[in-house]
Design a protein around this nucleic acid. Sequence first.
DNA 1: GATGGTCTGTGCGACAACACACATAGCGGA
DNA 2: TCCGCTATGTGTGTTGTCGCACAGACCATC
Lengths: 245, 245
Amino acid sequence: MHRNSRPPPIQNQLLAALPDKEYKRLLPHLESVSLSFMEVLYESGEPITHIYFPNDGLISLLIVMEDETPREVGLIGNEGMLGTAVVLGMKTTPIRALIQMPGSAVRMKAQALREELKPGGRLQSVLQRYTHALFTQVSQSAACTGSHELKPRLARWLMMTHDRAPGDEFVMKHEFMAMMLGVTRSMVTRVAGSLQNEKMIRYTRGQVTILDRSRLEATACECYGAVKAEYARSTAKSSINTASG
Amino acid sequence: MHRNSRPPPIQNQLLAALPDKEYKRLLPHLESVSLSFMEVLYESGEPITHIYFPNDGLISLLIVMEDETPREVGLIGNEGMLGTAVVLGMKTTPIRALIQMPGSAVRMKAQALREELKPGGRLQSVLQRYTHALFTQVSQSAACTGSHELKPRLARWLMMTHDRAPGDEFVMKHEFMAMMLGVTRSMVTRVAGSLQNEKMIRYTRGQVTILDRSRLEATACECYGAVKAEYARSTAKSSINTASG
DNA sequence: GATGGTCTGTGCGACAACACACATAGCGGA
DNA sequence: TCCGCTATGTGTGTTGTCGCACAGACCATC
C-alpha cells in the first residue's frame, strides 16, 4: 500500500522468504523466463548454467537409466528451486530436470549464486534448508516406490501435482504419468479409472480434474504427508537461526 | 617420516581431505566412539546431537514407515559422514541411522560443527560436496527400487557393503538384507542362493564371503557404477574451488 | 550327544504389475 | 462427414514377489 512496496509480488516462496535487503541485492541478477511443457532445463552430467526459482508450473527431477528409461525422483514447484547442486558447490548434477507443467520462473546465473552465497546470510540458510527438504522428498520417494502399491502412489502423485497447479484442473496424460511413476500406461489407465469411478478425479483426453481432494489424500500413501511435514519443518521460524541454537 | 606427521592416520576420507590447518582446528572437538551392530545413531525427528565420521563400519539410512517397516535409502562408510542435515542448517532429520556393520568413528557435537562451518573454508566445501554425493545415492536408489529386479539389486547392495567392509568376509544374515532391500527373507534366500550357485559369493549362518567381485559387479545393476562415478566427481580436484570457477 | 535355537532352503497358492494386442472414443482437419 | 490421430479402455497369459508354512542344517550348551 505504501509507495515502496515491491512492484511485482514474489511468487516463489524461497525468494519471498528473504529479507528485503537480500532480495534487492539479488534482483539485478534475476531474469524472468517461461517454462514450456517437456522442456529440459538440466541434462544429466552437463554444466549447470542457471538456477531456477519457479513462479508456477512444475519441474520433475529424473534419473535416466542407461537404456534412456527415465524415473522421477522429485518434484519442484514454486515452493522450491532447481539447482540445489550449486548450493552444494557442484557444477553439474546427474539428474535431468524436465518441465512437467508449463509456467514461469525467475532464473539466475549459477556463478552469480555462488558469489551471493558467500557471506552466509539468510539466502544461504533458506536454500540449504530447502535442499534438506528436497533430500527428504527424494528419500521418501525411494522408500515409497518399493513399499506402496500403484493406487496410493498415483494418488500421492496427483496430490503433489495439484498442490502446485493453478487450479483443480491440469493437463496430464496417462502416458506421462506412467513414465513418471515407472509403470506401464495401461496400469495407469486402470488405476486412474478406479479413482474416477470413485469420483475423486475426472479426466478426458489429457485434462485431469481433482474432484475430491480430501478423499484423494486419504487414498494417497503416508509419504505425501511425511514430505509435507518435513518441508514445513525446514521452513519453520523456530529453526531459522543456523548457528546460534 | 618427519616428526610432525599426524600421530594416528586419518581413516575417514572426508577428514583426510581437509588441509592440515583445518583438521587441527577440528581436532579438539573430535571424540572417538565405537559403532556397535544395530545401534541407532539418529532417530527420526529427534534432535541431532552429534555428527559422525566413520573410520570403518557401515551406517544405514532408513525411512521408517508408519507401521514401523524400515526401508534403506542410503549407505555411509568411511567415505562419508552422518549428519548432512546439520550441514544444511537443520537440527533434526526424518531419517533413522542404524549401524549395519560394526566399526568405529570420530564424532563431534552438532553445535561445534555449526560454528566451524561458518567461515566457508574447505571444511564446508568438502561436506557440502559429500552431501551432494549422498543426495545422488539416494536419488539413484529411488529410481533403482522401482526399475530393477531383486537379483541385480542384491548384487549392488553386496558390492556397496563390500566396498566398506574390512575384507572379503562380513557378518550379514538374509533376514537383515531382506529388511534393507524391503523384500521377504525367503526371496533373499532364493536370490542369494543363486549368486552362491554361480560362485560369486559364499555364506554360512550369517557370514558372507565375496568370491568373485568382478562378476558380482557385472550382475549388479548400473546404479552401482552411477553412484560411484558421481562420488568421484564430487571429490574431484577440478571441482574443489567453490566460488572461483 | 541330545536339545533347543537360529539360520537357511523350499513348496505352493495368491496377486500386482508386465507385455502386448486390440478395441473404443473423442477431436481436428480436409 | 469422413478420416486419421491420439487418448483411453480392456483381455489374456506371464512373471516376480509375497505370504506363509514347514523342512533341513548348523551351532552352542549342558
